[in-house]
Design a binder for these strands. Structure first.
Lengths: 206, 206
DNA sequence: GTCTATAAGGAGATAGAC
DNA sequence: GTCTATCTCCTTATAGAC
């Protein structure tokens, strides 16, 4: 932690960590204050409510993630290579922070409306939503060319995201629950990624 | 609700509903009491703690689900037909109660140890764990025969469960969020099931 | 077995001193 | 800007009357 940050930044920083670790409802403003090293009233002085603090933490974070969703699609290669890139990309994003996938899924389940807010924000952004339409078009073109079977773009995307995200949800639990053997974990994720790539690429072939 | 049930049964019945709808931490014993139509002290008289009430509700429920996991594998047909049955079976179980998938995933994320308890319980039961070993054997045999590509049984099972469960997590949200159009929902789940079956069956072929 | 009352604690938020 | 003190509400759990 950078001790030179001002308190407002430190609160954002600590709140992000605690929300990720214990969820929104599992984290109290008192606890955030304690971790920051100030009193609880100060949290409310800067952010007014816990809910607003949540948004101030995660809106830029989600924006950042959504900003780079079209990157893997723009890289060179045929359709199968592009799908390979997308899966690679999702795995690398979630691997940067192992708390991200469980956190997002948990909050999505508990507060669906919070996340339709992010979805709407995504759809209203022309640059971002055009990236998705490009993906839709690519899927349709490929079906027309006869290289992949009939499938809707939204289903393909859901398949990819489900398989990826669930790998991270099960990861810290079933396998390396007792030991924090990060080497085991890396090997497990590597195997899951290969499996997902194999299943999806093979699964959409005609 | 059967008014002839005794209070203990009514508490179990109401607690199950509320836990499923709002999660363990989102449900208070006061709320359960109110829904049952008694006072909150009575919950503790019968079940001592909220935690014990949780176990008393969900242990028989999980046992029941786990009891029937090997059913689809025992049905007639080749390996691909069996996998088809498994996916059909998971979808039909989760479709019986739309709250089940989000509930289980949410609690799994928030309390991993609670669910390793269920996993251990499953593995210690000879009849149940032998069903899984039978599945492992079937996968290996099929690889040897050259009909499917190299894949570990645990990965195949994770793929199937991830794709199935996530269909139910996204279901009540993205699609039919505003309207409670259960016809739309049924169509959506039908499409997801076809997609999952198509992806998995095609994806494991050599 | 069922109730009321209450203990003991934690939550989010605000008032007001400095 | 940062603090202490406090308000209000809600939680789980228990004591004790009936």
């Amino acid at each position: 932690m950078d001790k030179n940050q001002n308190i407002e930044e430190r609160i954002l920083w600590v709140a992000e960590r605690l929300f990720l670790e214990k969820g929104f409802s599992g984290t109290s403003t008192t606890e955030i204050a304690k971790a920051v090293g100030c009193n609880q009233a100060l949290i409310h002085y800067y952010f007014r409510t816990k809910e607003k603090l949540f948004w101030d933490v995660f809106t830029p974070k989600m924006d950042h993630i959504l900003d780079y969703l079209d990157t893997p699609l723009q890289e060179a290669g045929d359709f199968f290579q592009k799908i390979h890139n997308v899966i690679d990309f999702y795995f690398s994003i979630l691997e940067l922070d192992s708390r991200l996938a469980p956190f997002i899924v948990n909050e999505l389940i508990m507060h669906p409306t919070r996340w339709s807010h992010f979805r709407d924000r995504f759809l209203r952004d022309e640059r971002r939503s055009s990236a998705y339409r490009k993906f839709e078009k690519a899927v349709e073109d490929e079906i027309d060319r006869g290289t992949i079977r009939e499938i809707q773009a939204i289903d393909l995307l859901m398949d990819i995201m489900s398989l990826t995200v669930s790998s991270f949800i099960v990861a810290p639990r079933g396998y390396a629950l007792n030991e924090c053997d990060s080497d085991e974990r890396t090997k497990y994720l590597q195997r899951r990624k290969s499996d997902v790539i194999g299943l999806v690429l093979n699964g959409i072939k005609k």
